[in-house]
């Protein structure tokens, strides 16, 4: 009986140690909880105008949080939330989302949107940064499988200088027509890397 108790105690200790090691996000759990209403469970947003964060690249998400905090990227909801974050919080939150699985997308592009979208992204040399399937890398966001409505709004925000924290996008996207933006949004979000 005593041996059994000792074994159980050892197991409990081991389990506790494993739990502690596994929850490297303990310090930001409460902050992560505040993301859920808008960005969904584990960042798998189902709201068309709120971006999917699950599976997004760490460097990109971290940079956006940094930009919200500094005011480089403006957003009435995100800016106050980012004010509460220290650099280590931002890195942890970004890493947490990067480790989640990107939800399976369901958007499709029709033939016209695909043809126009391909032509526009080729002309803009978008693939040089976003890569061939628009999977992105590091500081360049994945847009394949993202909500089309969010991407379309983002592109219009870049065009109209509502969003200015990536100036190269402002310069490029202002050369796109409104129809081009709609087609590109449909095309690149329908891709599945």
């Amino acid at each position: 009986m005593r041996r059994c108790f000792a074994l159980c105690a050892l197991c409990a200790l081991l389990f506790a140690a494993t739990t502690v090691a596994a929850d490297e996000y303990a310090s930001v759990r409460d902050k992560l909880a505040t993301c859920v209403p808008c960005h969904g469970d584990k960042g798998a947003s189902k709201i068309p105008l709120n971006p999917i964060l699950a599976g997004q690249h760490l460097h990109y998400t971290y940079t956006q949080l940094k930009d919200f905090k500094s005011g480089f990227r403006k957003n009435a909801i995100m800016q106050p939330m980012a004010q509460l974050l220290e650099k280590e919080d931002m890195l942890l939150i970004a890493r947490y989302f990067s480790e989640q699985k990107w939800p399976k997308g369901s958007s499709v592009a029709d033939a016209r949107q695909t043809a126009t979208g391909q032509k526009v992204v080729t002309g803009g040399q978008c693939i040089q940064c976003h890569l061939g399937q628009f999977e992105g890398a590091s500081g360049v966001p994945r847009v394949a499988g993202q909500h089309p409505a969010y991407i379309e709004k983002t592109l219009f925000d870049f065009k109209n200088k509502v969003r200015t924290n990536s100036p190269a996008k402002n310069s490029l996207i202002k050369t796109f027509s409104d129809d081009d933006i709609k087609a590109v949004s449909a095309y690149i979000t329908a891709l599945s890397p």
């Binding site: 940079t63 080729t122 002309g123 040399q125 100036p167 310069s171 490029l172 050369t175």
Partner: peptide, 23 residues
């Protein structure tokens, strides 16, 4: 070749405009 006045964006892509292939 497109030019646009752009201050240093702190380590982000900084082209000061855009290059576009004429499709």
């Amino acid at each position: 070749y497109h030019v646009e006045e752009t201050p240093y964006p702190g380590g982000k892509l900084w082209l000061g405009g855009a290059f576009k292939v004429i499709a």
